[in-house]
């Protein structure tokens, strides 16, 4: 009898854990973090959802966007917990342009500005510092002329 109840409890916990992971809703983060755009205009957001239960997905995820010459962009990184999201910006040849985290100074930035002078596909590579799972959103904005 106790064994059956234990199994049911474990199963319900598993369902609960799964549904919590499914609740990683980027639009909740987006609406909360959009103010970080300041005077930049919102373009797009990317949902970051890394699950340790899916080791095949690796511990990082990648998005892409075509940045245009002459435009000034802002990239806002917004995690759903106290885990720090690390975002690397890579150019069209997948060469690292910059990151919101400096290994040397251990400094972490929630957002950074990119003054683009070369049009092309850029890659945004997101991971969580010290974790192989996490949830959050990356928001992209650009400066529109006044």
């Amino acid at each position: 009898m106790k064994k059956f109840i234990s199994i049911i409890i474990i199963y319900l916990f598993a369902i609960n854990a799964f549904s919590q992971s499914s609740n990683c809703n980027s639009f909740d983060f987006l609406d909360n973090c959009a103010q970080e755009l300041g005077d930049f205009t919102f373009i797009k957001s990317y949902n970051v959802k890394l699950e340790s239960a899916k080791p095949s997905s690796g511990n990082k995820t990648e998005f892409q966007y075509i940045f245009s010459k002459g435009h000034t962009y802002i990239i806002v990184v917004c995690g759903g917990s106290d885990k720090e999201m690390i975002l690397n910006l890579l150019d069209k040849d997948k060469k690292k342009v910059s990151s919101n985290y400096s290994k040397e100074t251990k400094q972490y930035y929630q957002k950074f500005q990119y003054n683009c002078n070369s049009t092309g596909v850029y890659y945004l590579e997101a991971s969580f510092k010290g974790y192989n799972n996490g949830c959050g959103v990356v928001i992209l904005g650009f400066k529109k002329p006044q």
């Binding site: 500005q113 003054n115 049009t119």
Partner: peptide, 28 residues
Amino acid sequence: NITYEYAEPTTKEVDGMLIIEDNTRSSV
């Protein structure tokens, strides 16, 4: 044709904000 002249990007911090200057130039 879109051509590229590659140069290393530079990074500076202004008022707590990280600013990256793309020094590569593309032309069409």
